[in-house]
Design a binder for these strands. Sequence first.
DNA 1: TCTCGATAAATCGGCCGTGA
DNA 2: TCACGGCCGATTTATCGAGA
Length: 446
Amino acid sequence: MNNRKKSKLSAKEILIRNRERKRLQKNETSRKSYGKLYKNKESETKTYSQTINARKKREQREKSKKINERKLKNKMNVRKHRGKKNVELSSMSLVVPEGSNVFKNRMEKARALRKFKEGLPKSPSKRCAVISTYLARRSPRSPTIANLKHSVSPVEMAVVADIQEIIKSTKLKRSKNARSVMNSVTASISGENLANSRGKIKLCKNLGLPARRVAGGQRIRSRILKSESSAWALTQQKTRKDSISEETKKTVYNFWLSDGISHPTGNKSDIKRERLGPNLYTSHMTHVLEKTQTDAYLDFVAKYPEIKIGQRAFEKLRPFFVRPASEKDRNTCCCRYHVEANLVFKACMKFRKSCDRETDSQESDYPVFEKMSDLIHITLCPKVNGFYRKNCLDRKCSLCGVGNFKLSPNESQSSSTVEWQKYEYITEKSKGKNVRRRLTLIKKEN
DNA sequence: TCTCGATAAATCGGCCGTGA
DNA sequence: TCACGGCCGATTTATCGAGA
């Protein structure tokens, strides 16, 4: 049974259990050994010789011990004082002397310097040559060299403080001016040198900025400084594994423009502009969504289950000229021609329905259309890039036309007539002898 | 033409995972 | 350890449209 129980434990659980056992064993052993030691110390009793010489010797040792302690204490105080003085002196000068904190005291530094001088050639030119060669051959990335070179002057500190002030007063503002200021500041402080030194996070902490804003400044800087081809190469740099691929972005972009998701408003004045830069704009005919963005997203997920993308990212990839439908987009034209065309369409579909009662209207070759646009669709060639060709719309195309709409045998042979309506002007007598013309809906029969 | 409220759009920044 | 980017809620700004 026990074996069975043991076999149920996972490898990780067994490992943890064994570690715990070892820890307990170790504790026990150390506790026992400490107990032994403690016992021995307790049982020890010191016995000193009480002879005159021995006593004198003990007093002498005690005395010298005290003197040594006093000397050591004094020495420490002096060192402490000198160290403090050195720091004060160095902070008064513009640049901190290189390596001031490397030696424990001045004497140690002086001795090292003397030793170094003795080892160098006697002629001044040779000495310089040796020193410069030595320093040049050391790796510039060596932390020791880097530390030696590191020095912050009060001037530099003042500049940093000024930048901090600008950032503090501007970073939360969203006005154009404030943004321009922040863009200038972040672009100025994030160059290649900063990138190479890998100190962005430290700088950000110091300036009170999130790293992302400095990175944004870096992008602005790159955009400005790099040529067009270089900027393009920059966008192609390696990205994380799960980043949205260019192909997916293109698929999403095209999906937003596909049938059933959005369509052009049809109004020439519906032009959407996007600002690309100062005095630089791009424009495109406005498209209106046929459903909510959430519905569009769900449709996309259903159509492309293999593409993993969040709703926000999906929405972010929406073309700038695609906008949700508003109430004004639902307005339909009420002009005479559109109303008449709609009346004729409805009358014809009603007639077809009455002729083909027994056949399934959706599956038959002669369907009963619900919308006028469906009927128009079959009389035109397929769309190219989302639009019908002008030739087809002008009815100049030899491949399409009204001939594509065919009557069913029942419709052709039917003896009944189609009732439809149209507007016509009729003259009627008004008060007195005046006659006036009035646009009236007249019933027709064919 | 101006004002004001509603709404859309843009941006920021925290959190988190991943790459170098 | 640092840099980057996706995700997402919060916040601010820009724009639109109605009314005076």
